[in-house]
């Protein structure tokens, strides 16, 4: 797929955000906050960095992306639609009976999905599986796993952290969408995971910390991670839940509540 330049990315990120708002308002349910916080990360990956071919979703050499935080499905669907995996009109079928755009990713139903997720904490392990298969198959693709901070509560995340380092799994790049909120409240209040970066470093990961809404920093961190050998990489992206819509930013009401039609209009007026 033809890649966009860094200069072209901001308008793409905005289009993705607009689609997130539109599709969630139409669906009447879903998760705006964690979709918006990951929008810049997915924009850089799908339009600037990843090797993939929407016309051939099963191309064996494609880079893989696993959205471990499956409730963020809208941002992934918007990215896939913009990349050309399916017509953009389909976005408005989100969560409706019979739609391939399930509330959480169902890899049987939509080309371009590399994992079925929605039970938090499982994506990193699946990513290790892809990365080990890559090594066996002597291919050069990368596996990207998008994690939420809430997922670092889960034991399986840390089992995967230990296993990936122990098996010297490279070409595995995790990006933590560190928006500081989970469902009931902030991560700090529910299950504080600080010091986050030190945890991953102590598990022998290559760790970078960036502003997850700075497209240049995201791209630079991913490029650096691609060069790392013999180690998995964790990019801790500091993000803002609800980023891009003033009244959704750091407002955890919009964790799992879709915007009303009126709220959606207000949001779209901001996203121009």
């Amino acid at each position: 797929m033809k890649k966009l330049t860094l200069e072209e990315l901001p308008s793409k990120a905005k289009e993705i955000r607009r689609d997130i708002i539109r599709m969630l308002a139409e669906a009447g349910s879903g998760h705006p906050g964690g979709s918006l916080s990951a929008a810049d990360i997915l924009t850089v990956l799908y339009f600037h960095l990843m090797n993939h071919d929407p016309a051939n979703p099963k191309w064996p050499d494609r880079d893989r992306l696993i959205l471990s935080k499956g409730h963020g499905a809208p941002v992934l669907y918007a990215a896939l639609a913009h990349a050309g995996y399916f017509p953009a009109e389909k976005l408005l079928t989100l969560r409706k009976l019979g739609s391939p755009l399930q509330g959480h990713p169902d890899m049987r139903r939509l080309p371009g999905l590399e994992a079925s997720t929605g039970s938090l904490g499982q994506g990193l392990s699946i990513g290790i599986g892809y990365a080990l298969a890559r090594r066996l198959d002597k291919k050069s693709y990368f596996t990207y796993v998008i994690l939420s901070d809430g997922e670092t509560n889960e034991g399986q995340t840390w089992e995967a952290a230990a296993a990936a380092a122990h098996h010297k799994v490279d070409h595995l790049i995790a990006v933590l969408d560190y928006n500081k909120f989970q469902l009931d409240d902030s991560v700090k209040k529910i299950c504080d995971m600080e010091p986050m970066a030190e945890k991953w470093r102590s598990f022998n990961w290559h760790v970078e910390e960036i502003d997850g809404h700075n497209l240049h920093q995201i791209a630079a961190a991913l490029r650096e991670a691609q060069e790392v050998q013999g180690k998995p990489c964790m990019i801790i992206a500091h993000t803002v839940k609800g980023k891009g819509v003033s009244f959704m930013e750091n407002n955890n009401h919009f964790h799992g509540v879709a915007p009303t039609k009126e709220e959606a209009e207000r949001a779209l007026r901001e996203l121009v």
Binding site: A27, G28, S29, G30, G70, R95, Q102, G103, H104, D106, S116, T117, G118, S119
Partner: peptide, 8 residues
Amino acid sequence: VGEDGASQ
């Protein structure tokens, strides 16, 4: 459960 889908 409805719209959240099979995983939930």
